[in-house]
Amino acid sequence: MTTLSFALKISLQQRVDVSPLTPDNLVGKSTGEIAAIELQAGNRKVRTDEIFTLSGDDTLNIVFKTASTKLDYIGKGNGKGVITVDGDAGAYLGFQLKGGIINVSGSVGAYAACEMRNGEINIGGNAGDFLGAALPGNKKGLQGGVVIVKGNVGERVGDHMRRGSILIEGNAGAYLGSRMTAGTIGVLGEVGAYPGYAMKRGTLLLIKAPAAIPSTFNDCGAHTLGFLPLLLKGFQSYNTQFGAMAEKVKRVRRYAGDMSGVGKGEILVVI
């Protein structure tokens, strides 16, 4: 069996919802049946083979070649297999992902890993706003799994996040971990203003100290926390620099907050 690939053959004028093209949906389907699947493109429906050139037959191993920022909902609700994106992806990458792996070589739009339940997402470039967040009005953002971003991320990352890990190797925008209920967000680079805004529980692990700790977070002092090596060791099976930090990161300054609310969250700044 060879990898099932979807090579974009036209320059997209409208956004395309490619959520039907997941291993879960395609398993057992012939190439002809896959080619006939209708995708929502702007305000009309198009056949898959109108915009993609199809090749291969391994529905558990899907590749979007020469991908575009106009391809939305890649891997929506998928539970198994590997989806690879050569290039950039649009919004809602891995929306409500239940399992499997999504690898993106380029950057992704807003709401990547939105309401994701489990699995793994690796993003080689940058990610937009609301990475691992909940849809507006919903209460549960990322609920499990691991999201790794090699580049920078936008604002409100992990908004309403409930469980799982987001590991950012670049910089993070403002309101990192806003309204977070639980889980872990790690950032190697700089973070924007108001990290942990309205955070209830959960952990922000910052390798670099932010320009300012929000006034609603209280300093709990410097500590050697035993769970940190265990946590970081847990990332060694992933493609992230955080795994290699298990031996180095032990001592942190702990800030508890957001004290304007529940106040059981924490910002850990490595010292």
Partner: peptide, 23 residues
């Protein structure tokens, strides 16, 4: 004040104690 952490599919508890944290 206890904190739960899921690491590689296993759940751990960080319990604040007088010498630091009991994991």
């Amino acid at each position: 004040f206890q904190i739960s952490k899921h690491i590689n599919g296993k759940r751990y508890w960080r319990i604040p104690v007088m010498d630091g944290e009991f994991l």
